[in-house]
Amino acid sequence: MTSIANFITALSRYDFLQSALVTAIMVGVMSGIIGSFIILRGMSLMGDAISHAVLPGVAIAYMLGINMLFGAAVFGILAAVLIGYIATRSKLKTDTSIGVVFSAFYALGFILISLAESSTNLHHILFGNVLAVSDNDMISTAVVLALVIIFVIFMYKELLITSFDPVFAQSYGLNTLVIHYSLMLVLTLVTVSALQTVGIILVVAMLITPAATAFLWTNKMHVMLILAAILGVLASVIGLYFSYTFNWASGPAIVVVAAVGFVFSFLFSPKQGLLFQHRKEPAKRDA
């Protein structure tokens, strides 16, 4: 208990901790929302791939001294296009194409980073260091959050229908490719933001775990989005507390908290919690 009090005192005292908290909250919201679409579209692997594939972009942006978001966006989209291109132009399946492309990008990123920088920075990029967030990072994160919210509000029905029934969407003339690549672009931006809090290796956990947890509790997509955002925030804030108090890397701390939430829901959620399953079975097809 005293450690929580300490944390709160420290929050009121230290700017860096306030920045960390605000950033962690923003990242929790955006990754919960975008992650929900990623898992509903069956694209968890793609989410993982894109989040790793931005690494060369991050390195190049660092070398050029420009905002990481630009470098990441370029390489994220490039990876998404390449993955799609290889899968459609060969008989390879998409997951194979993803495996080839993202590992190549990731490897390239490592080489570029080792050319550009010392190993401390690499450690931060890989595992996150939310306690070292700068004001500029925080502003970038706020811009991305605004973009995510605008994107989801204005494209809500398009995101819904292309996730649920893409062939139907195409059949009434919706350009599903544009929606797909828009989502991939937003995903790369979210990845870069989440990189600060959880690091590149664990970004996928922030995308998937809160969304998967939310999925276990609801049958409505908009409820799932909101719930995933809340869970993302909770994991981020509680994780930050552990990170500060016990001096753990922020990424693993946040991700472990999110995973605990998932395990709890997996056991107890009324929709598909293990403990309820046998009770629910007979009533399922009462139509």
Partner: peptide
């Protein structure tokens, strides 16, 4: 001007959407 009812083979039946919202998506086009 077209309504296409596809053959249902690989629809995600666990998707968080209810009957009404599926029908409502008919108005999206």
């Amino acid at each position: 001007r077209v309504a296409y009812v596809e053959q249902r083979k690989d629809l995600d039946l666990t998707f968080p959407i209810n009957v009404f919202d599926v029908v409502l998506s008919g108005t999206y086009g």
